[in-house]
Design a protein around this nucleic acid. Sequence first.
RNA 1: GACCCCCUAGCUCAGUUGGUUAGAGCAUCUCACUUUUAAUGAGAGGGUCCUGGGUUCGAGCCCCAGGGGGGUCACCA
Length: 567
Amino acid sequence: MIRSEQERVRLESLAQLRQLGIDPYPAAAYPVDTHAGPLSADFAADREVCLAGRILSRRIMGKASFAELQDATGKIQIYLNRDELCPDEDKTMYNTVFKKLLDRGDIVGVKGTTFTTQTGEPSVLVKELTVLSKSIRPLPSVKTDEDGKVHDAFTDPELRYRMRYVDLVVNPEVKRTFEARSRVIQAMRDAFTEKGWLEVDTPVLQAIPGGAAARPFITHHNALDIPLYLRIANELYLKRLIVGGFDGVFEFSRNFRNEGMDRTHNPEFTVLELYVAYQDYHWMMETIEQLLERVCQAVHGTNTATLEGNTIDFAPPYRRLSMRDAILEHAGVDIDGMDEAALRGACAELGIEVDDSMGKGKLIDEIFGEKCEHHLVQPTFITDYPVEMSPLTKAHRDKPGYTERFELFINGTEVANAYSELNDPIDQRERFEEQLKLGERGDDEAMFIDQDFLRALEFGMPPTSGVGIGVDRLVMMLTDQRSIQEVLFFPQMRPEVFRSGPDLDALEAMGVPSEWAPHVAAAGFDTPEAIREAKPTALREKLNGFRKKNKLDLPALQLEEVESWSA
RNA sequence: GACCCCCUAGCUCAGUUGGUUAGAGCAUCUCACUUUUAAUGAGAGGGUCCUGGGUUCGAGCCCCAGGGGGGUCACCA
């Protein structure tokens, strides 16, 4: 493994710590009794404290030094004075351990007394310093000046997402985003459990990937010798539980869709699904309004959030607009009563591209997506979707051709999708068969038919309202993030290729003379494996050929010598 | 999948028309410094210019192919 200069220095420091009898990775628990955030927020001098964290910066001035210690809650300055830290003759702990062998990024524990410096900075005078973990890679050197301006920020998205641990250490606002994410989920869970609804787990591995229209990831179960799919949705399982007699069930469901990735799509994403018996979609709109107000309060302490410069007001009630009226309002077209041909004509007039596989539902969705979505900045319920685009939704109680469905849009993005759930088993079977026809027309996202789900409906499902909320997108809205990657700790990336480079130390360890090692590597045998895999006779020939070609001032290799390497 | 942009030291970035030994700030190392805070002062080291080909007397720079990332679009209720 190739080490940079700074890494080699740190590895050397690590070795020297061990020589001094200091374990750089001690096993024992460290008795932390104070945290940096609360300590500096509510600072009082002359308190004995014990805290632990990562050294973020050091300012060494001879016999006294300052360092910033960062723990999970924040930062506090620590002050190390040679004679306070080492009251006896032996000044090793200060002169050698702290000044020479510790680095930015190392994790230490300190015991000492709080005080305020001459410049008014709350600090801890360190009486005892314990090495808790030695860091051998240098952290990016992010600095903040007195105006709060950040210099040399760690900003490369690739590095930030691949090394989220580094991102979290040096970019404190990233931590805030994920803390907000946790509060969003917690607020929802609290709201539902208070109502007596049951949090459940349903299968991620499914034989039939149902409940949504999307391309699934496929895998294989060896013992059963069958294909299995990672779920694209959990909807049909939660409805089975409503059939089984629960009044309310919810699940934070990690779903997987084998489709494109962009600012708002990650192959795996989280949806909160909630189903409540004996309710309809009107009730669900009120429930969602109240829920989002509560969630916004949990994150911001107010009913509003700022998003791309817009103030989003999460206080109920939200505007309710039927899909027909939305299209009428923004595209000037009345879709009511239009057949497929008329819709195609409308799309052509509006300059919307369509293809032959699209049925009525998809055509309407195209118009809506193209002409309406981006206008919906404040939270808006779009209601009453055409039956063709909603195969799991109950037909509208008094608008033929429409369904009792709504989607919630915020800032032009769909955040929630809810129905009065279709519980008529005959109708549901017909809807699935329609989907099958769409699939035959070339719509590769048409739904699969789930016979067991139909059987469950045939036993009788109470009238039910269900909703799915895109948790990742909601968190984006509440944290003013433009990319889903910013609200997922580990967004999907292409696997990183680790180029190991020639391992000269390993070559020498197996007996390759140090003067030969770089040349052996250059000749293409840059790892011990490469040497072991080669026949010694062929290896010797190649290396001596390399020696001749490059006029190396080294004696030719003997066969016994080459054989001894792989022995 | 298409198009555009990016990839140079640990980090953030310069790098002129293709021309000597590839630069800066921070970080690192050495020395000085007992209340600093982007500490300071002096000195030093550190590079697979993403990879592989090509053109050329000469490539970080031009050409071709590949890799990774970002953006826009397409796809995606």
